[in-house]
Write a protein that binds this DNA or RNA. Structure first.
Lengths: 216, 216
DNA sequence: AGAGAACCGTACCGTACGGTACGGAGAATT
DNA sequence: AATTCTCCGTACCGTACGGTACGGTTCTCT
């Protein structure tokens, strides 16, 4: 049989196991993710786990990589945009961001990575931010560049503009959700928050249509 | 001998032990804080630890409460403020906030609480946010009320204004520091970040003095 | 059909941790 | 001086977890 997995590709069976691992992690945190427990939940043997993922840290890394591989495909736009379309895209980005960050899987993985941050290995935090965040950052960055190119917003420092956008959208919600605070989102308030944040962003970086005066 | 500690007061010896516990926690995360390890580091017996704090969770709670008891005393102002003084107070608040959040002890405790967030007990997260954050929130809230009363800023929703301020100051720094990302602050950039955030906050909530249409 | 690999289920081992028990030392009280 | 209290240091116990080994089963390839 030719090598089916060149380097890091996972067989469907292995992906299935990682999926069960994610469920355990979401349900009970890192403590609930034991090799014996995962083997039982996934109907596989511990021996196979160690064969596939090396050791427990390898398993954790594989979980993060696996989840990150599913997140690809944020909105990406290169064409010219009307002002309204641009604002809608921004609002959509804000909603997506809030939805992702408040998702149980995202919260569980971030808690996992944060819990490992003290150890010197610390590959998990870097992995998570690299695999998960970079895509989001790039999508937003492209969006902001398009908005500037089309004359809807102005900024001198792209990175600063993006971080401001991020801060306006997320505020302290992420950390509070990570701490386990419940009930931070009422039914429709996620969309309202996103909309509100984008309005504030335009107040800071938007160009006045017609005269184009100000910015910070 | 009369009861020296009425209810929750701690003897100097016990506070000393908690201090060593904090050191262990900062140095190596939750995993490094074992009862045996703490007993050795603090030159006390495990029996005493259990006598004083009940069990390990009680110890963790005591650590958080102990640290929170030291943080009191953010700036608090009720008098009338000039515009410049108000801005300086805000900037000072922003610097303090960034300094606290980026402190090793704060990061270690937040990591600890976040790691426990999955368990249903979850007293730690609530405790941390209640003891640590409330003071900060109140100080900032008072400051914003004073600023509105003196006519320097305007807002309809105090809570929304505060959260916007928080988001502008902290952005995604807190989570990234929690994840262990290093080198997020260059030498003087903390002050610059605080200053920048306050400028943006004034752009959003400041009242135009006379006209001053200058910035957004 | 037979050989071999992959894999499951279980048992097993060593370690480390939470929590308890015990002996002994120092200090205060009587 | 005898008693009592607190506390330290150590030893101890049960459990749970990471990691390994092994017999039996299913599937694939020839």
């Amino acid at each position: 049989m030719p090598e089916r997995q060149s380097k890091e590709e996972l067989t469907p069976r292995q992906q299935d196991v990682l999926e069960r691992a994610l469920e355990l992690l979401v349900a009970g945190g890192e403590k609930a993710l034991t090799t014996a427990g995962l083997a039982r939940a996934a109907n596989c043997s511990k021996e196979s786990l160690y064969k596939w993922f090396g050791d427990r840290d390898g398993l954790l890394a594989a979980i993060i990589a696996h989840q990150a591989s599913k997140v690809r495909g944020f909105t990406d736009t290169g064409a010219t945009l009307s002002r309204d379309a641009f604002e809608m895209h921004l609002t959509g980005f804000a909603e997506d961001l809030l939805r992702v960050l408040s998702g149980e899987v995202s919260l569980a993985l971030n808690r996992l990575a944060i819990g490992q941050a003290s150890r010197e290995g610390n590959r998990l935090g870097a992995l998570l931010v690299a695999q998960g965040r970079r895509r989001i950052d790039q999508a937003a960055t492209r969006l902001l560049e398009a908005g500037k190119r089309c004359g809807h917003i102005h900024y001198d420092d792209l990175d600063d503009a993006y971080r401001t956008l991020y801060g306006l959208i997320v505020r302290d919600l992420h950390v509070r959700m990570l701490l386990g605070e419940a009930g931070l989102f009422k039914p429709r308030s996620l969309e309202a928050q996103a909309e509100h944040a984008i309005q504030q962003f335009f107040a800071l970086f938007g160009v006045r249509e017609k005269e184009t005066a100000g910015r910070v």
